[in-house]
Design a protein around this nucleic acid. Structure first.
Lengths: 193, 193
DNA sequence: AGGAAAACGGAGCATTGCTCCACTTAATAT
DNA sequence: ATATTAAGTGGAGCAATGCTCCGTTTTCCT
């Protein structure tokens, strides 16, 4: 129920052209609205911006998480793909891990409210949670394993816990110059050694 | 606007007995409801439980944060007071810091949704944020300073950032056996050394 | 007791999530 | 080209919740 084609692109929508057109309109509108109002923006507003009815949004994206996922799919994908590349290119596995986490944090930090949504136990976001995890957990695990094997860090840290923690640390950084998640994340990483 | 007597007890309510009685009824009801439904529970429900109208709650506690603060005041106070005591009794300043953080985490973790509320940028919780910070930040700062002076940890970590991070890490641990904030917090503390 | 001030309570408005269903439209069959 | 039908659409409507307004009730003071 989370998504669709297990390893694939978002569904092209039905075969009907109006369906495809509307789907895209919603995606575009959502992307715009998310920037200004965060991923919690009222569905009504997105519908209005897209020039469609609310039901159309719910039909294409049954839960809010589905919509958010679809909007950010490319970026999540990019982040996932960066993992192996960094592992190959960086000076050390630990360095690869650090750089990858930087990437991940950048992503979360620039999307208003995304981190909040990610940790939410709200049912509406369950699918978002799933997608992030399904896609990024293996990557994180791989980096973690490599760093352990290289002796850079101690074994025993679970990818899930690490990613969850990083996500949490990214919450609510907005409008608060006193709080920079990156510093704490660096500290956390340091504690891993 | 956050609270009342700067360094003191909660206001006794007005002089009128019905006001005092109702205030206490609300506090009791809120405490019960918070346990089962979290600090986000509908005001209506608290009002019903207390046997008062909603306006009465809003009159006594203008914002939700005021109510939450009042309910947990004693425990916040206890946590604040534990700081200096631990510093005196523990084996090392670092150990005092660790124990104090344990106390703080216990507090957050046992209050359903408190951590979420604490980090929220929602205006309704601004006062909660303030109160926590006003009361606990100096304590944390003191512990941190002592640990730095003893050479246990490096200088440069801001109390605000640390507490904020710990609070964030405590978010959403409920119903998720895979996520234990304490492990990550230990890691963070380790990174401080 | 009498009256003023304080407190009260719930109806009411606004916002938002989500659903239901009568209508419209695109694809297809004839 | 037209008719048929299934897919798609939109917005009214209901429920939950936050917060306020104001007529009524209670308390306290003299």
């Amino acid at each position: 129920m989370a998504t669709d084609s297990p390893a694939g692109e978002p569904p092209p929508g039905g075969t009907r052209v109006d369906a495809r057109r509307n789907r895209q309109a919603v995606l575009d509108a959502a992307a715009e609205v998310f920037v200004t109002s965060g991923v919690d923006a009222p569905i009504r507003r997105i519908a209005a911006r897209a020039g469609v009815g609310m039901a159309t949004i719910y039909r294409h994206f049954p839960t809010r998480a589905d919509l958010v996922t679809a909007v950010y799919r490319h970026q999540i994908e990019a982040c996932a793909e960066a993992g192996p590349r960094l592992l190959a290119d960086a000076d050390s596995p630990f360095d690869a891990l650090r750089q990858w986490i930087d990437l991940f944090v950048d992503f979360l930090v620039t999307k208003h409210g995304l981190a909040d949504a990610l940790r939410s136990d709200d049912d509406r976001f369950a699918a978002l949670h799933s997608y992030f995890l399904d896609r990024l957990l293996p990557v994180c695990g791989q980096l973690l394993d490599a760093a352990v094997e290289a002796g850079d860090i101690e074994a025993g840290t679970q990818p899930y816990e690490l990613m969850r923690g990083i996500g949490n640390l990214c919450i609510g950084h907005e409008n608060d110059p006193r709080y920079d998640p990156r510093r704490l994340i660096a500290l956390l990483l340091q504690g891993l050694r």
